[in-house]
């Protein structure tokens, strides 16, 4: 189990992290969301020992992550970094060696990963000659080449085209299937929703929500009822008790029922107007949850990890 526990960090008067904590199970993917400047990168840098935290620690299988243990962690920094003039294959092998592989094992693993990420033909090229998308793949190869036990990736999907996103997602899911816990940060919430077993939302240095996407949905109010009644007269729902009309357009109506409202009563009212072509609860998307969690400063329902 990968645990982030009570991380605090301030730069002068600026409190960047104020008790950030969450856990990631082996073989699961954790999506780390938050607006710009929320502290995602700082959290990951603390895990990699690049920033010293004021308090709190990161543990892997109960042990505090130290220099030695970090060698088993694959890391992709937010600012991509590779030696521009070094050849792809040699570069990947170099990072493998820094993670403790022998020369022979490193060059074998480098060859394997470069091939697997579709860069076989570019192995002998300097990194600076590659397209950005391909450089990103080299970066991923550098993170994966040492067969890490844990993956921590800062914005791995940024700057990739849809095909690149799919192949990276596939690569990460492969890792998850072999039991590796994967933490990645992203602004692409649809992607997080699709890939991640659990999600954490960071705002103003605190975790404002963690859990599976379903759990977040259940916890959050904001479920809407969509009713499509093509034959209804405009304003048909206005008189329904305990229901607020969010929007109504040509019979396509979004309703926000107050807690405890009987949805079957709403259905009955709808049927009285004529045909009902659609009647369903609409789950809030992660984007809506995210907006709700991040927008309101009072939503400080911290979920202890």
């Amino acid at each position: 189990m990968l645990e982030f526990d009570g991380l605090r960090k301030s730069y002068g008067a600026n409190q960047v992290l104020d008790g950030v904590g969450f856990t990631v199970q082996p073989g699961s993917m954790f999506g780390f969301c938050g607006s710009n400047g929320a502290g995602k990168t700082t959290t990951m840098r603390i895990a990699m020992g690049l920033v010293l935290s004021d308090a709190g620690e990161v543990r892997w299988q109960g042990r505090r992550l130290d220099q030695e243990l970090r060698r088993r962690v694959g890391y992709m920094p937010e600012e991509r970094g590779l030696y521009p003039k070094m050849k792809v294959g040699e570069q990947v092998a170099y990072f493998a060696r820094l993670h403790g592989l022998t020369a022979a094992a490193a060059s074998k693993a480098s060859e394997e990963w470069v091939e697997r990420l579709g860069l076989g033909a570019r192995r002998g090229d300097a990194v600076e000659k590659l397209s950005l998308g391909n450089q990103q793949r080299v970066q991923l190869a550098a993170a994966l080449v040492s067969r890490p036990e844990v993956l921590i990736l800062d914005e791995p999907f940024s700057g990739l085209d849809p095909v690149g996103v799919d192949s990276l997602a596939e690569g990460l899911l492969d890792q998850v299937r072999t039991g590796v816990p994967v933490v990645f940060s992203s602004h692409q919430l649809d992607l997080v929703e699709r890939l991640c077993d659990s999600v954490g939302i960071l705002a103003r240095g605190r975790m404002v929500a963690t859990g599976t996407v379903d759990e977040l949905r259940r916890r959050e109010a904001g479920r809407l009822l969509r009713v499509v009644v093509p034959d209804a007269v405009p304003g048909w729902a206005a008189a329904l008790p305990g229901v607020r009309v969010v929007s109504e357009q040509a019979g396509d109506t979004l309703l926000d029922p107050a807690p405890g409202t009987d949805d079957q009563a709403v259905l009955a009212a709808a049927l009285r107007t004529g045909r009902v072509t659609h009647f369903a609860w609409r789950e809030p998307t992660l984007v809506e949850l995210f907006r709700g969690a991040v927008a309101d400063p009072r939503t400080d329902e911290e979920v202890a990890a």
Partner: peptide
């Protein structure tokens, strides 16, 4: 989307893979 139980974790702490 959690890990299929058929594939056991490849590495565990303390016992890295042979060429790991």
């Amino acid at each position: 989307m959690s890990a299929p139980t058929s594939t056991p974790p490849r590495t565990t702490a303390g016992t890295p893979a042979p060429e790991g």
